[in-house]
Design a binder for these strands. Structure first.
Length: 105
DNA sequence: TTCGTGACCTAGC
DNA sequence: AGCTAGGCCACGA
């Protein structure tokens, strides 16, 4: 029979694909959207294993602190940040994003 | 099976 | 703002 995880994975992909350009979500929010609250870690693991050619907007996922979950000096960080900047996502001087603009606005 | 690690989160200090 | 601790879960050694 179909494992519950497979379905959750589909929900995760669907939820992620539904994130509009110019906005972001946290790993925890995405987990909740996928029907698995508290499984932020699972989301992170899934994204880490995502193929490079994926159409999914993985770059619109950031951590609960409003920061990109990559070392600031890494190529991955620069890659994600430039993608977000291209969509008009604002970064503060300290490299953070105002989550209030999305989650609570 | 226990341990360490990881694109995490929240609470407390 | 930084650190610690607990929670969560999957994986490899």
């Amino acid at each position: 029979m179909t494992e519950p995880n497979t379905n959750a994975l589909q929900q995760l992909y669907t939820a992620l694909a539904g994130i509009p350009a110019g906005s972001v979500v946290t790993y925890g929010q995405l987990a909740a959207l996928a029907g698995m609250p508290g499984r932020a870690r699972w989301v992170g693991r899934v994204l880490s294993q995502l193929p490079e050619g994926s159409q999914l907007p993985w770059f619109r996922v950031i951590n609960a602190q409003g920061r990109i979950s990559f070392p600031p000096d890494s190529a991955a960080f620069a890659r994600q940040q430039s993608r977000l900047l291209a969509e008009g996502v604002d970064f503060s001087a300290s490299g953070r994003i105002d989550l209030n603009r999305f989650g609570l606005n």
